[in-house]
């Protein structure tokens, strides 16, 4: 585990976190708060879309996001050879 190796690992980690944060922000603050009125013009079944994101969709995205992050980080650990054991 060289210092360059660790630095590359940390950079890749930060990129992944940044990407996840964009999705996190979009599906909650974006679709559920800032753009809620615009999205409410669209309907999915009995839901207005903006309202659905605020009370349902954002939560589903959060769950998927954490599992995605865990999966990506575990493979980054392997790739940069910093995994446990």
């Amino acid at each position: 585990m060289t210092p360059e190796n660790r630095a590359a690992y940390w950079q890749a980690n930060l990129r992944l976190v940044f990407g996840c944060m964009i999705v996190w922000f979009l599906c909650s603050y974006g679709f559920g708060v800032l753009l809620v009125d615009e999205l409410n013009a669209i309907r999915i079944g009995g839901f207005k879309l903006g309202f659905w994101f605020a009370q349902q969709g954002s939560i589903y995205v959060f769950v998927i996001l954490i599992f995605f992050y865990a999966w990506r980080m575990n493979s980054l650990d392997q790739k940069h050879d910093v995994h446990e054991d």
Binding site: C20, M21, W24, S28, V36, Q55, S58, I59, F62, A70
Partner: peptide
Amino acid sequence: LIAFLGYDGSVYLMGWTGGYVLLALF
């Protein structure tokens, strides 16, 4: 709370779940 607040109750739903993303990532 949500029953009486309607959409405004979303703050609790998003707020008390979205924090886990921060917790997991940071």
